[in-house]
Amino acid sequence: MDDKKKDLMKVIQMNFTRLSKGQKIIAEYIMSNYDKAAFMTASKLGEVVGVSESTVVRFATSLGFSGYPSLQSALQELIKNKLTTVQRLSMSDNYSNNEVGLKKILRTDMENIKATIDDMNVETFEKVVDSILEARRIYILGLRSSTALADYLGFYLGILVDDVKVVKTGTSDVFEQILRVTKDDLVIGISYPRYSRRTLDVLKYVKGQQCKIVGITDSLVSPIANIADYTLIARSNMLSFVDSLVAPMSLINALIIAIGIREKDNIKKYFNELEIIWKEFNIYDSKDKTSQNDK
């Protein structure tokens, strides 16, 4: 079984009786303190429970994981949707030193993008592009922290293709905005921890209407990955009260550019017309005007 798809607590319980004495101590600590253990190195976890680092590593392999890093990843997946904002805020102490914190945060963003590149299924990405171009109408759903991603995708997608609607909370309920969805439409659902239950409910509804769904999320164990026809994964790991949206934004940029390349001939005329309107109504300051004002 894929390390990332293991039900960790169930695996520990099923294997508990055959673990060594030291490994049982580790298992008991993890089951009671999984939110703390998830961010400990093998050395630190061993120190806390009073066993050697090698015992921690053997504990991971005895559960069927390829190594301790895989066990740690499973722990982090487990807590993504369970930690409260207050608990996650306490983890921000890792960034308390401004200079060290700045570099750690930027480095984490870089690692998220690298992991996104490494895990990307290009065939799935191309099928998503095809689905967007073939859809009669496109609905984009991203609530709470994912709202910014949904708005960004909706803004540019609205330039490239016809009939794009961003579904958001407001004067009307999200279900009212998506009520007329059909099997000829496409719904793009964006969801990151802590996963919005409302997003999941809406996607379950449109699935019942035989509508095709594209999911943009952080992991294949995300709730929406089980519903979506196609799932694009962009990592968002950040040991803080906020999630990193850098990799998801980069993925969305790639999606927009790929569609723009496919539709280059069609949108060239559109942008030429826009340039005329922008110039006529002074939407943007020209360099010449700026230069004159500087004088």
Rank of each mutant, 00 (worst) to 15 (best):
R235H: 08
I257E: 11
R235A: 04
L232Q: 06
A254K: 10
T231H: 02
G215H: 00
I256Y: 07
I213A: 03
L239G: 06
K212C: 10
D229T: 08
A258M: 05
L245A: 08
G260P: 05
A228M: 05
V246T: 09
S236I: 01
I233K: 00
I256H: 07
T217K: 03
I259G: 07
G260C: 03
M249H: 11
I224D: 03
K207Y: 09
V246S: 06
V221G: 09
T217A: 01
S250K: 05
I213Q: 05
S240M: 12
M249P: 03
I216S: 00
I261W: 10
I213Y: 05
V221D: 11
Q209T: 14
L245R: 06
M249I: 12
A234I: 01
S244I: 05
I227N: 04
K207G: 10
G215W: 00
P223Y: 03
S240K: 09
S236P: 03
L232R: 03
V221N: 13
A225P: 03
C211Q: 04
A225W: 02
A228C: 06
Q209G: 15
L239S: 09
Q209W: 15
I259P: 09
D243Q: 11
A234W: 00
I256T: 05
V214N: 00
L239H: 14
M238A: 11
V246K: 00
A258G: 14
V246H: 02
D243V: 11
